[in-house]
Design a protein around this nucleic acid. Structure first.
Lengths: 218, 218
DNA sequence: CCGGCCCATCGGGGATTCCCCGATGGCGCG
DNA sequence: CGCGCCATCGGGGAATCCCCGATGGGCCGG
Protein backbone atom coordinates (compact mmCIF):
# COMPACT_ATOMS: atom_id res chain seq x y z
CA UNK A 1 0.00 0.00 0.00
CA UNK A 2 1.08 3.54 -0.68
CA UNK A 3 3.03 3.24 -3.84
CA UNK A 4 1.86 6.69 -5.00
CA UNK A 5 1.88 9.55 -2.59
CA UNK A 6 -0.22 12.55 -3.50
CA UNK A 7 2.20 15.19 -4.72
CA UNK A 8 1.16 18.58 -3.42
CA UNK A 9 2.28 22.10 -4.25
CA UNK A 10 1.43 24.65 -1.59
CA UNK A 11 0.90 28.31 -2.46
CA UNK A 12 0.40 30.96 0.21
CA UNK A 13 2.19 34.24 0.63
CA UNK A 14 2.33 34.09 4.41
CA UNK A 15 5.37 32.06 5.28
CA UNK A 16 4.17 31.20 8.74
CA UNK A 17 0.77 30.02 7.59
CA UNK A 18 2.33 28.16 4.70
CA UNK A 19 4.80 26.44 6.95
CA UNK A 20 1.99 25.56 9.29
CA UNK A 21 -0.16 24.00 6.64
CA UNK A 22 2.84 22.25 5.20
CA UNK A 23 3.46 20.75 8.55
CA UNK A 24 -0.12 19.47 8.57
CA UNK A 25 0.28 18.01 5.11
CA UNK A 26 3.59 16.40 5.99
CA UNK A 27 1.90 14.56 8.78
CA UNK A 28 -0.57 12.93 6.40
CA UNK A 29 0.14 9.48 5.06
CA UNK A 30 0.74 9.21 1.35
CA UNK A 31 0.98 12.94 1.00
CA UNK A 32 4.14 14.57 -0.20
CA UNK A 33 4.63 18.31 -0.38
CA UNK A 34 6.85 18.76 -3.40
CA UNK A 35 7.09 22.52 -3.32
CA UNK A 36 6.01 25.81 -1.81
CA UNK A 37 5.16 29.01 -3.61
CA UNK A 38 4.78 32.47 -2.15
CA UNK A 39 2.85 34.01 -5.02
CA UNK A 40 0.60 33.14 -7.91
CA UNK A 41 3.43 33.57 -10.38
CA UNK A 42 5.67 31.26 -8.44
CA UNK A 43 2.89 28.72 -8.15
CA UNK A 44 2.48 28.65 -11.93
CA UNK A 45 6.19 28.26 -12.51
CA UNK A 46 6.62 25.54 -9.92
CA UNK A 47 3.55 23.68 -11.07
CA UNK A 48 4.86 23.57 -14.61
CA UNK A 49 8.16 22.26 -13.35
CA UNK A 50 7.04 19.87 -10.63
CA UNK A 51 3.75 18.62 -12.07
CA UNK A 52 2.06 18.09 -8.72
CA UNK A 53 -1.22 16.21 -8.42
CA UNK A 54 -2.78 18.99 -6.39
CA UNK A 55 -2.09 22.64 -5.77
CA UNK A 56 -3.33 24.00 -2.47
CA UNK A 57 -3.73 27.68 -3.17
CA UNK A 58 -4.54 30.63 -0.95
CA UNK A 59 -6.79 33.14 -2.64
CA UNK A 60 -5.52 36.39 -1.21
CA UNK A 61 -1.93 36.69 -2.31
CA UNK A 62 0.13 39.68 -3.24
CA UNK A 63 0.72 40.05 -6.94
CA UNK A 64 -1.25 37.51 -8.91
CA UNK A 65 -3.98 36.28 -6.65
CA UNK A 66 -5.12 32.73 -6.21
CA UNK A 67 -8.13 32.93 -8.49
CA UNK A 68 -6.15 34.29 -11.38
CA UNK A 69 -3.43 31.75 -10.75
CA UNK A 70 -6.00 28.98 -10.66
CA UNK A 71 -7.48 30.07 -13.95
CA UNK A 72 -4.11 30.08 -15.66
CA UNK A 73 -3.06 26.87 -14.05
CA UNK A 74 -6.15 25.07 -15.27
CA UNK A 75 -5.45 26.54 -18.65
CA UNK A 76 -1.86 25.40 -18.86
CA UNK A 77 -2.01 22.20 -16.87
CA UNK A 78 -5.58 20.90 -16.95
CA UNK A 79 -4.65 17.70 -15.17
CA UNK A 80 -3.53 19.53 -12.05
CA UNK A 81 -6.23 19.81 -9.41
CA UNK A 82 -6.55 22.98 -7.42
CA UNK A 83 -7.84 23.35 -3.88
CA UNK A 84 -8.58 26.94 -3.03
CA UNK A 85 -7.99 28.13 0.53
CA UNK A 86 -9.84 31.19 1.66
CA UNK A 87 -10.63 33.12 4.77
CA UNK A 88 -14.17 33.60 3.62
CA UNK A 89 -17.16 31.54 2.64
CA UNK A 90 -19.25 34.06 0.79
CA UNK A 91 -21.19 32.35 -1.95
CA UNK A 92 -20.21 34.64 -4.77
CA UNK A 93 -16.66 33.95 -3.86
CA UNK A 94 -16.96 30.20 -3.92
CA UNK A 95 -18.58 30.48 -7.31
CA UNK A 96 -15.65 32.45 -8.61
CA UNK A 97 -13.29 29.77 -7.42
CA UNK A 98 -15.34 27.06 -9.07
CA UNK A 99 -15.49 28.99 -12.31
CA UNK A 100 -11.76 29.46 -12.16
CA UNK A 101 -11.57 25.68 -12.19
CA UNK A 102 -10.99 24.82 -8.55
CA UNK A 103 -11.79 21.28 -7.51
CA UNK A 104 -11.99 22.16 -3.86
CA UNK A 105 -12.76 25.15 -1.70
CA UNK A 106 -11.74 25.25 1.93
CA UNK A 107 -12.39 27.96 4.44
CA UNK A 108 -9.44 28.53 6.71
CA UNK A 109 -11.41 27.74 9.77
CA UNK A 110 -12.07 24.27 8.48
CA UNK A 111 -10.64 21.40 10.48
CA UNK A 112 -7.47 19.60 9.56
CA UNK A 113 -9.37 16.42 8.85
CA UNK A 114 -11.32 18.33 6.25
CA UNK A 115 -8.17 19.34 4.49
CA UNK A 116 -7.14 15.74 4.26
CA UNK A 117 -10.52 14.60 3.05
CA UNK A 118 -10.63 17.30 0.45
CA UNK A 119 -7.15 16.43 -0.68
CA UNK A 120 -7.92 12.78 -1.14
CA UNK A 121 -11.27 13.58 -2.66
CA UNK A 122 -10.03 15.84 -5.39
CA UNK A 123 -7.35 13.44 -6.57
CA UNK A 124 -10.18 11.00 -7.19
CA UNK A 125 -11.84 13.55 -9.39
CA UNK A 126 -14.36 14.67 -6.84
CA UNK A 127 -15.22 18.24 -5.96
CA UNK A 128 -15.02 19.14 -2.28
CA UNK A 129 -16.24 22.23 -0.56
CA UNK A 130 -16.21 23.33 3.04
CA UNK A 131 -19.34 22.10 4.81
CA UNK A 132 -20.15 25.70 5.68
CA UNK A 133 -20.92 26.22 2.04
CA UNK A 134 -24.49 25.51 1.32
CA UNK A 135 -25.65 22.87 -1.07
CA UNK A 136 -27.63 25.53 -2.88
CA UNK A 137 -24.50 27.34 -3.87
CA UNK A 138 -23.22 24.37 -5.75
CA UNK A 139 -26.54 23.57 -7.30
CA UNK A 140 -26.89 27.12 -8.41
CA UNK A 141 -23.48 26.90 -9.91
CA UNK A 142 -24.23 23.69 -11.75
CA UNK A 143 -27.44 25.14 -13.05
CA UNK A 144 -25.79 28.24 -14.32
CA UNK A 145 -22.83 26.53 -15.93
CA UNK A 146 -24.70 25.41 -19.01
CA UNK A 147 -25.99 28.87 -19.68
CA UNK A 148 -23.71 31.82 -19.18
CA UNK A 149 -20.64 30.30 -17.53
CA UNK A 150 -18.52 33.29 -16.58
CA UNK A 151 -20.08 36.62 -17.29
CA UNK A 152 -18.37 38.46 -14.50
CA UNK A 153 -14.70 39.35 -14.21
CA UNK A 154 -13.84 42.99 -14.42
CA UNK A 155 -12.12 44.67 -17.33
CA UNK A 156 -8.52 45.77 -16.83
CA UNK A 157 -9.61 49.36 -16.53
CA UNK A 158 -12.20 48.48 -13.95
CA UNK A 159 -9.66 46.54 -11.93
CA UNK A 160 -7.35 49.51 -12.00
CA UNK A 161 -10.06 51.84 -10.81
CA UNK A 162 -11.22 49.40 -8.16
CA UNK A 163 -7.73 49.07 -6.79
CA UNK A 164 -7.44 52.81 -6.44
CA UNK A 165 -10.83 53.09 -4.82
CA UNK A 166 -9.87 50.46 -2.29
CA UNK A 167 -6.67 52.33 -1.58
CA UNK A 168 -8.71 55.31 -0.61
CA UNK A 169 -8.23 57.57 -3.59
CA UNK A 170 -11.07 59.95 -4.22
CA UNK A 171 -12.84 60.01 -7.53
CA UNK A 172 -11.09 63.23 -8.37
CA UNK A 173 -7.66 61.84 -7.55
CA UNK A 174 -8.28 58.76 -9.63
CA UNK A 175 -9.40 60.89 -12.55
CA UNK A 176 -6.26 62.97 -12.29
CA UNK A 177 -3.89 60.05 -11.97
CA UNK A 178 -5.44 58.16 -14.85
CA UNK A 179 -5.94 61.23 -16.99
CA UNK A 180 -9.68 60.78 -17.10
CA UNK A 181 -12.63 62.97 -16.39
CA UNK A 182 -14.33 62.57 -13.06
CA UNK A 183 -17.38 61.42 -14.93
CA UNK A 184 -15.57 58.51 -16.49
CA UNK A 185 -14.26 57.34 -13.16
CA UNK A 186 -17.76 57.56 -11.77
CA UNK A 187 -19.06 55.48 -14.61
CA UNK A 188 -16.39 52.88 -13.99
CA UNK A 189 -17.22 52.75 -10.32
CA UNK A 190 -20.91 52.39 -11.07
CA UNK A 191 -20.26 49.57 -13.52
CA UNK A 192 -17.94 47.80 -11.14
CA UNK A 193 -20.64 47.94 -8.50
CA UNK A 194 -23.19 46.62 -10.93
CA UNK A 195 -21.01 43.73 -12.07
CA UNK A 196 -20.20 42.73 -8.54
CA UNK A 197 -23.65 43.51 -7.22
CA UNK A 198 -22.15 45.68 -4.52
CA UNK A 199 -23.96 48.78 -3.41
CA UNK A 200 -21.44 50.79 -1.46
CA UNK A 201 -17.80 51.76 -1.47
CA UNK A 202 -17.17 49.85 1.74
CA UNK A 203 -18.28 46.71 -0.05
CA UNK A 204 -15.85 47.42 -2.85
CA UNK A 205 -13.02 47.78 -0.38
CA UNK A 206 -13.92 44.52 1.31
CA UNK A 207 -14.14 42.82 -2.07
CA UNK A 208 -10.75 44.16 -3.07
CA UNK A 209 -9.24 42.85 0.13
CA UNK A 210 -10.88 39.45 -0.24
CA UNK A 211 -9.45 39.06 -3.70
CA UNK A 212 -6.05 40.30 -2.67
CA UNK A 213 -6.32 43.23 -5.05
CA UNK A 214 -5.15 45.37 -2.18
CA UNK A 215 -3.95 44.58 1.31
CA UNK A 216 -5.78 45.82 4.38
CA UNK A 217 -2.74 47.77 5.43
CA UNK A 218 -0.90 50.41 3.43
CA UNK B 1 18.63 20.19 30.21
CA UNK B 2 15.09 21.06 29.43
CA UNK B 3 13.38 20.79 32.74
CA UNK B 4 10.96 23.61 31.93
CA UNK B 5 9.27 23.65 28.57
CA UNK B 6 7.75 26.93 27.47
CA UNK B 7 4.03 26.57 27.95
CA UNK B 8 2.17 28.18 25.07
CA UNK B 9 -1.47 29.04 24.51
CA UNK B 10 -2.39 29.56 20.88
CA UNK B 11 -5.27 31.82 19.86
CA UNK B 12 -6.45 32.09 16.27
CA UNK B 13 -9.94 31.78 14.94
CA UNK B 14 -8.94 29.95 11.77
CA UNK B 15 -8.71 26.31 12.69
CA UNK B 16 -6.50 25.40 9.79
CA UNK B 17 -4.02 28.17 10.45
CA UNK B 18 -4.09 27.45 14.15
CA UNK B 19 -3.45 23.79 13.61
CA UNK B 20 -0.65 24.67 11.27
CA UNK B 21 1.09 26.96 13.69
CA UNK B 22 0.53 24.49 16.46
CA UNK B 23 2.25 21.92 14.40
CA UNK B 24 5.19 24.27 14.04
CA UNK B 25 5.28 24.90 17.76
CA UNK B 26 5.01 21.21 18.56
CA UNK B 27 8.11 20.61 16.54
CA UNK B 28 10.14 22.99 18.68
CA UNK B 29 12.19 21.66 21.55
CA UNK B 30 11.14 22.71 25.03
CA UNK B 31 7.93 24.15 23.73
CA UNK B 32 4.62 22.76 24.84
CA UNK B 33 1.29 23.93 23.46
CA UNK B 34 -1.02 23.67 26.44
CA UNK B 35 -4.15 24.92 24.76
CA UNK B 36 -5.83 26.43 21.74
CA UNK B 37 -8.40 29.18 21.64
CA UNK B 38 -10.61 30.22 18.76
CA UNK B 39 -11.54 33.65 20.04
CA UNK B 40 -10.39 36.38 22.35
CA UNK B 41 -12.87 35.37 25.00
CA UNK B 42 -11.71 31.80 24.92
CA UNK B 43 -8.11 32.90 25.10
CA UNK B 44 -8.81 34.86 28.27
CA UNK B 45 -10.62 31.99 29.89
CA UNK B 46 -8.01 29.43 28.99
CA UNK B 47 -5.16 31.66 30.01
CA UNK B 48 -6.68 32.12 33.45
CA UNK B 49 -7.07 28.40 33.78
CA UNK B 50 -3.85 27.15 32.22
CA UNK B 51 -1.46 29.93 33.15
CA UNK B 52 0.74 29.60 30.09
CA UNK B 53 4.08 31.36 29.82
CA UNK B 54 3.21 32.83 26.46
CA UNK B 55 0.05 33.44 24.48
CA UNK B 56 0.49 33.52 20.71
CA UNK B 57 -2.45 35.62 19.60
CA UNK B 58 -3.80 36.45 16.18
CA UNK B 59 -5.04 40.02 15.94
CA UNK B 60 -7.98 39.62 13.61
CA UNK B 61 -10.45 37.36 15.32
CA UNK B 62 -14.19 37.28 15.33
CA UNK B 63 -15.72 38.61 18.49
CA UNK B 64 -13.14 40.06 20.81
CA UNK B 65 -10.09 40.77 18.72
CA UNK B 66 -6.51 40.09 19.62
CA UNK B 67 -5.65 43.60 20.75
CA UNK B 68 -8.55 43.81 23.12
CA UNK B 69 -7.81 40.34 24.39
CA UNK B 70 -4.17 41.28 24.89
CA UNK B 71 -5.11 44.35 26.86
CA UNK B 72 -7.38 42.40 29.17
CA UNK B 73 -4.93 39.57 29.48
CA UNK B 74 -2.15 41.89 30.57
CA UNK B 75 -4.55 43.40 32.98
CA UNK B 76 -5.63 40.16 34.57
CA UNK B 77 -2.46 38.15 34.24
CA UNK B 78 0.47 40.52 33.97
CA UNK B 79 3.01 37.72 34.12
CA UNK B 80 1.75 36.16 30.89
CA UNK B 81 3.63 37.28 27.81
CA UNK B 82 1.76 37.91 24.60
CA UNK B 83 3.06 37.52 21.07
CA UNK B 84 0.79 39.17 18.57
CA UNK B 85 0.44 37.59 15.14
CA UNK B 86 -0.75 39.80 12.32
CA UNK B 87 -1.09 39.84 8.59
CA UNK B 88 0.14 43.38 8.49
CA UNK B 89 3.14 45.39 9.45
CA UNK B 90 1.78 48.90 9.42
CA UNK B 91 3.49 50.98 12.02
CA UNK B 92 0.40 52.34 13.70
CA UNK B 93 -0.70 48.80 14.13
CA UNK B 94 2.46 47.59 15.77
CA UNK B 95 2.24 50.50 18.15
CA UNK B 96 -1.26 49.50 19.14
CA UNK B 97 -0.05 46.02 19.90
CA UNK B 98 2.81 47.32 22.00
CA UNK B 99 0.49 49.65 23.88
CA UNK B 100 -1.86 46.76 24.50
CA UNK B 101 1.08 45.12 26.24
CA UNK B 102 2.38 42.70 23.64
CA UNK B 103 5.93 41.49 24.12
CA UNK B 104 6.27 40.38 20.52
CA UNK B 105 4.82 41.26 17.14
CA UNK B 106 5.13 38.86 14.24
CA UNK B 107 3.93 39.34 10.72
CA UNK B 108 2.47 36.18 9.28
CA UNK B 109 4.92 36.09 6.47
CA UNK B 110 7.73 35.81 8.95
CA UNK B 111 9.79 32.64 8.87
CA UNK B 112 9.29 29.78 11.26
CA UNK B 113 12.67 30.37 12.79
CA UNK B 114 11.54 33.85 13.69
CA UNK B 115 8.58 32.51 15.56
CA UNK B 116 10.88 30.35 17.62
CA UNK B 117 13.32 33.16 18.28
CA UNK B 118 10.52 35.45 19.31
CA UNK B 119 9.07 32.81 21.55
CA UNK B 120 12.30 32.18 23.38
CA UNK B 121 13.07 35.86 23.47
CA UNK B 122 9.89 36.97 25.15
CA UNK B 123 10.08 34.38 27.91
CA UNK B 124 13.42 35.97 28.79
CA UNK B 125 11.69 39.27 29.14
CA UNK B 126 12.78 40.64 25.79
CA UNK B 127 10.61 42.36 23.25
CA UNK B 128 10.70 40.92 19.74
CA UNK B 129 9.34 42.38 16.57
CA UNK B 130 9.36 41.20 13.00
CA UNK B 131 12.47 42.44 11.20
CA UNK B 132 10.22 44.13 8.67
CA UNK B 133 9.29 46.57 11.39
CA UNK B 134 11.58 49.53 11.41
CA UNK B 135 13.72 50.44 14.34
CA UNK B 136 12.17 53.89 14.21
CA UNK B 137 8.79 52.49 15.07
CA UNK B 138 10.03 51.13 18.33
CA UNK B 139 12.06 54.18 19.17
CA UNK B 140 9.09 56.35 18.45
CA UNK B 141 7.08 54.18 20.76
CA UNK B 142 9.62 54.30 23.53
CA UNK B 143 9.85 58.04 23.21
CA UNK B 144 6.13 58.47 23.39
CA UNK B 145 5.58 56.12 26.29
CA UNK B 146 6.76 58.53 28.95
CA UNK B 147 4.47 61.25 27.73
CA UNK B 148 0.96 60.36 26.70
CA UNK B 149 1.02 56.57 26.65
CA UNK B 150 -2.27 55.59 25.10
CA UNK B 151 -4.32 58.45 23.83
CA UNK B 152 -6.03 56.60 21.05
CA UNK B 153 -8.61 53.83 21.32
CA UNK B 154 -12.09 54.63 20.14
CA UNK B 155 -15.09 55.16 22.35
CA UNK B 156 -17.76 52.44 22.32
CA UNK B 157 -20.01 54.65 20.27
CA UNK B 158 -17.30 55.31 17.76
CA UNK B 159 -16.56 51.60 17.47
CA UNK B 160 -20.20 50.95 16.82
CA UNK B 161 -20.35 53.58 14.11
CA UNK B 162 -17.09 52.41 12.58
CA UNK B 163 -18.35 48.87 12.39
CA UNK B 164 -21.44 49.99 10.55
CA UNK B 165 -19.46 52.16 8.18
CA UNK B 166 -17.19 49.24 7.35
CA UNK B 167 -20.22 47.10 6.70
CA UNK B 168 -21.32 49.54 4.09
CA UNK B 169 -24.15 51.33 5.83
CA UNK B 170 -24.71 54.85 4.66
CA UNK B 171 -24.66 57.73 7.08
CA UNK B 172 -28.40 57.96 6.87
CA UNK B 173 -28.89 54.26 7.56
CA UNK B 174 -26.61 54.40 10.55
CA UNK B 175 -28.46 57.41 11.91
CA UNK B 176 -31.74 55.59 11.52
CA UNK B 177 -30.56 52.34 13.09
CA UNK B 178 -28.94 54.07 16.04
CA UNK B 179 -31.71 56.63 16.44
CA UNK B 180 -29.36 59.50 15.84
CA UNK B 181 -29.39 62.51 13.61
CA UNK B 182 -27.33 62.31 10.45
CA UNK B 183 -25.23 65.11 11.83
CA UNK B 184 -24.24 63.13 14.87
CA UNK B 185 -23.16 60.19 12.80
CA UNK B 186 -21.14 62.53 10.64
CA UNK B 187 -19.46 63.95 13.70
CA UNK B 188 -18.62 60.47 14.92
CA UNK B 189 -17.16 59.54 11.58
CA UNK B 190 -15.08 62.71 11.48
CA UNK B 191 -13.76 62.08 14.98
CA UNK B 192 -12.96 58.48 14.22
CA UNK B 193 -10.99 59.60 11.21
CA UNK B 194 -9.17 62.18 13.27
CA UNK B 195 -8.30 59.73 16.04
CA UNK B 196 -7.01 57.16 13.59
CA UNK B 197 -5.48 59.71 11.26
CA UNK B 198 -7.35 58.20 8.35
CA UNK B 199 -8.61 60.43 5.59
CA UNK B 200 -11.07 58.33 3.62
CA UNK B 201 -13.79 55.78 4.12
CA UNK B 202 -11.78 53.14 2.31
CA UNK B 203 -9.11 53.54 4.95
CA UNK B 204 -11.69 53.08 7.67
CA UNK B 205 -12.87 49.87 6.07
CA UNK B 206 -9.34 48.56 5.79
CA UNK B 207 -8.70 49.50 9.40
CA UNK B 208 -11.84 47.72 10.53
CA UNK B 209 -10.79 44.60 8.69
CA UNK B 210 -7.26 44.70 10.07
CA UNK B 211 -8.59 44.88 13.59
CA UNK B 212 -11.14 42.18 12.99
CA UNK B 213 -13.93 44.62 13.73
CA UNK B 214 -15.61 43.32 10.61
CA UNK B 215 -14.76 40.51 8.24
CA UNK B 216 -14.00 41.15 4.60
CA UNK B 217 -16.93 39.03 3.58
CA UNK B 218 -20.54 39.57 4.58
C1' DC C 1 -18.32 70.76 45.09
C1' DC C 2 -17.30 72.82 41.12
C1' DG C 3 -14.71 73.79 37.07
C1' DG C 4 -12.75 71.47 33.45
C1' DC C 5 -12.68 67.73 30.13
C1' DC C 6 -14.38 64.29 27.26
C1' DC C 7 -18.32 62.07 25.28
C1' DA C 8 -22.45 62.16 22.69
C1' DT C 9 -25.56 64.82 20.56
C1' DC C 10 -27.29 68.30 16.97
C1' DG C 11 -27.55 72.25 13.41
C1' DG C 12 -26.25 75.82 9.38
C1' DG C 13 -24.52 76.45 5.05
C1' DG C 14 -21.50 76.03 1.25
C1' DA C 15 -18.60 72.80 -1.39
C1' DT C 16 -18.41 68.45 -3.18
C1' DT C 17 -19.82 64.24 -4.72
C1' DC C 18 -23.15 60.87 -6.11
C1' DC C 19 -26.67 59.06 -9.06
C1' DC C 20 -29.64 58.51 -13.08
C1' DC C 21 -30.20 59.94 -17.50
C1' DG C 22 -28.08 59.92 -22.25
C1' DA C 23 -24.25 59.90 -25.85
C1' DT C 24 -20.09 58.80 -28.83
C1' DG C 25 -16.01 56.58 -30.95
C1' DG C 26 -13.38 52.40 -31.24
C1' DC C 27 -12.92 47.58 -31.80
C1' DG C 28 -13.66 42.66 -32.40
C1' DC C 29 -16.60 39.05 -34.17
C1' DG C 30 -19.85 36.48 -36.70
C1' DC D 1 -21.57 45.65 -41.48
C1' DG D 2 -24.33 45.66 -37.67
C1' DC D 3 -24.16 44.27 -32.87
C1' DG D 4 -22.22 44.36 -28.49
C1' DC D 5 -18.87 45.70 -25.32
C1' DC D 6 -15.44 48.89 -23.70
C1' DA D 7 -13.92 53.39 -22.47
C1' DT D 8 -14.93 57.89 -22.52
C1' DC D 9 -17.73 62.22 -21.21
C1' DG D 10 -21.68 65.54 -19.86
C1' DG D 11 -26.19 67.68 -17.44
C1' DG D 12 -28.69 68.35 -13.57
C1' DG D 13 -30.84 67.47 -9.28
C1' DA D 14 -30.28 64.88 -5.01
C1' DA D 15 -27.46 63.45 -1.44
C1' DT D 16 -23.45 63.78 1.18
C1' DC D 17 -19.40 65.80 3.09
C1' DC D 18 -16.84 69.27 5.56
C1' DC D 19 -15.94 73.15 8.64
C1' DC D 20 -17.98 76.08 11.68
C1' DG D 21 -20.25 76.28 16.40
C1' DA D 22 -23.20 74.64 20.45
C1' DT D 23 -25.32 72.00 24.50
C1' DG D 24 -26.03 68.75 28.25
C1' DG D 25 -24.25 64.97 30.97
C1' DG D 26 -20.87 62.37 33.44
C1' DC D 27 -16.50 61.92 35.73
C1' DC D 28 -12.40 63.37 38.10
C1' DG D 29 -9.07 66.20 40.50
C1' DG D 30 -8.16 70.24 43.15
Amino acid sequence: MAPRPIRVLLADDHVLVRAGIRSLLDAMAQVEVVGEAGSGEEALALAAQLRPDVVVMDIAMKGMNGLEATTRLRDQLPEVRVIVLSMYSSEEYVLQALRAGAAGYLVKDAATAELERTLRGVVNGETWLSPSISRQTVDGYARRMGADAEQDALTPRQLEVLRMIARGRSTKEIAYELNLSVKTVETHRAQIMERLAIRDVAGLVRYAIRTGLVAADM
